[in-house]
């Protein structure tokens, strides 16, 4: 069971996660219009920028975040932005979309000039997230947990970050037990996706370099 405080925290996080998303007209553009490779690139960078902006808005609402050292706030966001972006994008491929939409989206990403070497692990991740059928609560919590990773580079006060992350982990563990009573490994699987995300983050840095070059 969740305590009353945990319920409040969870509802607040989910509301904030749902409220802060990429503007719909931008997401629509991705599905409706035909672009060449260069326009694909521009649209995807515009979306990435928007992703980061909404991520910051969501993060500001995480209880206690704005009380952290200002440079630590930046270090946490910088270290997690790409991972949070992949987590959010995975939702697009998880949710039921009108027929053909996810194929169109996949096609556009594949034709954006990014090499297959990076695309394949990305879609593998989207598939592995899809298999977990994550709830909104799990999405929001996992995103907050990713952001509040104390071991990010340049974080000075790791303990302060840990104090914010621990209650989130506890709520996530309880949510998993409540909603997946017959899958005791569900919580561990969710955390396992965070390890996968770190690998993607690493690939992403290399991918950007190759993308810029091409």
């Amino acid at each position: 069971e969740l305590t009353r405080e945990q319920h409040t925290l969870l509802n607040f996080l989910v509301d904030s996660y749902n409220k802060h998303r990429i503007p719909q007209d931008m997401a629509k553009k991705l599905l409706q219009e035909q672009f060449n490779a260069e326009e694909n690139f521009l649209l995807l960078t515009e979306m990435a920028t928007s992703h980061v902006q909404v991520l910051v808005e969501f993060t500001k609402n995480i209880p206690g975040f704005l009380g952290l050292d200002h440079e630590d706030q930046i270090a946490l966001l910088k270290g997690s932005a790409v991972e949070a972006m992949f987590l959010r994008s995975a939702q697009v491929f998880t949710r039921k979309m009108p027929s053909g939409h996810s194929e169109l989206l996949e096609d556009r990403i594949r034709k954006s000039g990014i090499s297959d070497e990076f695309i394949t692990p990305m879609f593998n991740f989207y598939n592995s997230i899809g298999q977990l059928h994550m709830l909104q609560e799990e999405q929001a919590l996992l995103t907050a947990i990713t952001i509040l990773t104390p071991e990010r580079p340049y974080v000075k006060d790791q303990q302060a970050v840990e104090r914010l992350q621990d209650p989130m982990l506890d709520v996530l563990r309880r949510i998993c037990a409540l909603h997946h009573p017959h899958q005791p490994q569900h919580f561990a699987r969710l955390l396992g996706r965070l390890t996968e995300l770190r690998t993607l983050n690493h690939h992403h840095a290399e991918m950007l370099t190759s993308w810029r070059t091409s």
Partner: peptide, 21 residues
């Protein structure tokens, strides 16, 4: 344009928005 900003710039700007609020 935002496209030309680095990740850290985008984060700093977005966080500053809060301070101005």
């Amino acid at each position: 344009p935002a496209n030309n900003l680095g990740l850290e710039d985008i984060i700093r700007k977005a966080l500053m928005g809060n301070l101005e609020d």
